[in-house]
Design a binder for these strands. Structure first.
Lengths: 134, 134
DNA sequence: TTTAGTGTCATAGGACTGTATGACAGTGGC
DNA sequence: GCCACTGTCATACAGTCCTATGACACTAAA
């Protein structure tokens, strides 16, 4: 299974799962339309309550990452955000600012920082089969 | 006062303060060695319990952003992180990945994303008096 | 219709978080 | 020493969060 829970991390289980699904979707490990593991078997495999998985999936649905078809299961959606363009832009800028502020505190200079960003972009593109992020 | 609390945001007051101090330090609004507002007056001004401010300052001290001299006050430290270099690198990469994953979900392409990053770097450098992030 | 699979909802309990209060300890000027 | 200022700690309490349980509803195949 592609998902791994770290019970010692202190981070809530359902959030770990949310991040991993988003990450897998962004890197192309999971493709649009693909079904996600169904709740009960995944819960059993990860040794976690089924409602914990359900909560993660609900959160992902709210974020527009997946859609659930009643009685059938959960499926990765085509990329589109439920938010309006200005809100999306604001969210992304906040995320970027966090990274920039952290770079400052960690004493990483501009060139090194940009290099790291490009490296990660490359990594994700490579993972998703030489496809550009779009 | 440079700090503003949004009580409707849902974000804990002490975390709002932590972010604002980090942001102010990164952008040069606050300079190393400068004293931060002392706890009680700031608490009064922001209409917040004094221990809420104290908690924010404690957190900032743990992050290596400020240091407190008993009986005197809290002062912005020279930039240095309490973490080792590999840990710092890992933290920063996680932060960058979050932004990259979000860009993917928000359907922002590579060039646009890099442009946004540069824009924010420029912004912070400009704020801190044309000084490079280091 | 029955059965086995899917996700959903209401509810509950234990742990944790955020904030508040009061008492305490260090510093420096009077 | 006293006083006014600094930050700190122990404690308390309400609210929230995370996880867990049981009952429910939808879908598809036998």
């Amino acid at each position: 299974m592609i998902f791994k829970i770290d019970f010692k991390s202190g981070k809530p289980v359902y959030l770990q799962l949310v991040d991993q699904v988003r990450y897998a979707a962004a890197s192309g490990v999971l493709q649009a339309g693909e079904p996600l593991p169904s709740i009960r078997p995944l819960a059993e495999e990860l040794r976690v309550n089924r409602n914990t998985i359900a909560k993660a999936y609900t959160e992902l649905e709210n974020q527009g990452v997946l859609e659930t078809r009643p009685g059938k299961g959960c499926f990765l959606k085509e990329n589109n955000s439920p938010f309006t363009k200005p809100i999306r832009q604001k969210l992304l800028l906040a995320e970027i600012d966090e990274a920039v502020v952290m770079a400052h505190h960690l004493q990483v200079d501009r060139e090194k920082f940009l290099a790291l960003v490009q490296e990660r972009l490359d990594y994700f593109e490579q993972q998703s089969g030489a496809k550009k992020i779009n």
